[in-house]
Amino acid sequence: MKILVALKRVADPDNANKVKIPADGSTIDTAGLEFKPNPFDEYALETALRLTEDGTKPKVRDGEVIVVTFGPADTESTLRAALATGADRAIRVDANDDQLDGLLVAKGLKTLVAEEKPDIVLMGKQAVDGDTNQVGQALAELLDWPMATFAATIEEQEDGLVVGREVDGGVLELSIKYPAVVTVDLRIVSPSSVYSTKTDRSFKYNEGVRFSPLPAIMQARRKPLDTKSLADLVDDTGLKINYLRFEAPPARLAGVKVADAAELVDKLKNEAKVL
């Protein structure tokens, strides 16, 4: 089993420095931001690790997990953190964030897929910065591969995967053959969400993504990390999505205290006009 995991880094919402938008709204000012992996992509990496191991022996990798990101040199920190968590090797496609859109990333991934020939491409359902939710779907279309999005559960079969997806009133199960593109939702890192054929169904994972053991952190630098240029992967690197203008959401107004339920209903009806 060979799995390609696409990772994107996003601005860390817990950091004191926040995304800023200059007055003319022409761009997003990323100066001083700290970055962390997109949480849904971290879940995709955890999923890939669970699919390539016996859950009771997480140090032994049965298969290969390759992580890829598109970004400038300092995104290698994100990749090395993934290598410390358990990925086997990494690829960075050199590009600045403002040179990328979802379709361009999908096209770049398509070329990488042709080179690497993975059985599965895994990624988060969307990145929590732009929330565009399109790379997985665009990649499946470009490759003409089966696709399962918003995966909440995955069970490995001999020739494919059974993917569960939460829908109103239940879970929809899809059976897909390799090779395939799968995007994951937050429930995928629950204790019983992912089972490889090696992991017994009675095994329960810890909730969430695994911690990188210290010895693996120390060895991460010794794992291969290749760099490619975007132009090597994609002929036409022009953007198909142009951002016209950015604006911050309006500041939240202070609340008001109401005397009684009648006044509340009156305000909801006549001021907020929601009733």
Binding site: A81, F211, P213, I217, M218, A220
Partner: peptide, 8 residues
């Protein structure tokens, strides 16, 4: 490595 250890 220190950064990754601290995050962990």
């Amino acid at each position: 490595e220190h950064h990754m250890l601290r995050q962990m």
